[in-house]
Amino acid sequence: MMYKHLAGFLFAALLFFSSGCSVFMAIDQPDKKNVDLFRVGTPRSVLLGEFGAPAVSETRSGRKYEIFKFVQGYSTGAKAGRALVHGAADVATFGLWEVVGTPAEAIFSGDEMAYEVSYDQDNKIDEVTTLKE
């Protein structure tokens, strides 16, 4: 009899502490980046503002080359919508949705992307190469 109560308590505690993980994971997904900035004529300062410091920066034959690596995430609306769906599914299934929702959020956590750019003498992009899309 005591084992039944202990098992029930442990199950309830597990449900309580795991409930909502997918909701928070959806909200914490990476933000969507403006990859349209990777075009000829974009100033280097604009790239740095959107993507941060490049992963690689080097000079070859007098030209500056940089590689930007990042995870392409989701818009604020998409993240909020996903969190809302996870929350509703959690309530409807008494928390059992987390068995599906948490691994799904771990899998759909954005796409790794990489671009190599070179600059002209005015520090504006003059060439873009997509390395990973």
Rank of each mutant, 00 (worst) to 15 (best):
F11N: 00
F11K: 04
A13K: 09
A13N: 07
F17D: 08
S18I: 15
G20V: 14
C21V: 13
C21N: 15
A26M: 14
A26C: 11
D28H: 13
D28K: 05
Q29D: 12
P30Y: 04
D31N: 12
K32V: 06
N34T: 03
N34C: 02
D36F: 14
V40S: 15
T42E: 14
P43I: 03
R44K: 13
R44N: 04
R44C: 00
S45I: 07
S45D: 10
L48Q: 03
L48P: 00
A53R: 05
A53T: 01
A53C: 00
A55G: 03
E58R: 06
E58K: 04
R60W: 06
G62T: 09
R63K: 13
R63H: 08
Y65K: 09
Y65L: 15
I67C: 06
V71W: 02
G73D: 09
T76K: 11
A80G: 07
A80W: 08
R82D: 03
L84M: 12
A88K: 04
V91H: 01
T93C: 00
T93G: 03
L96M: 10
L96W: 04
W97Y: 13
P103M: 00
A104G: 00
A104F: 07
E105H: 06
G110C: 07
E112I: 05
M113I: 00
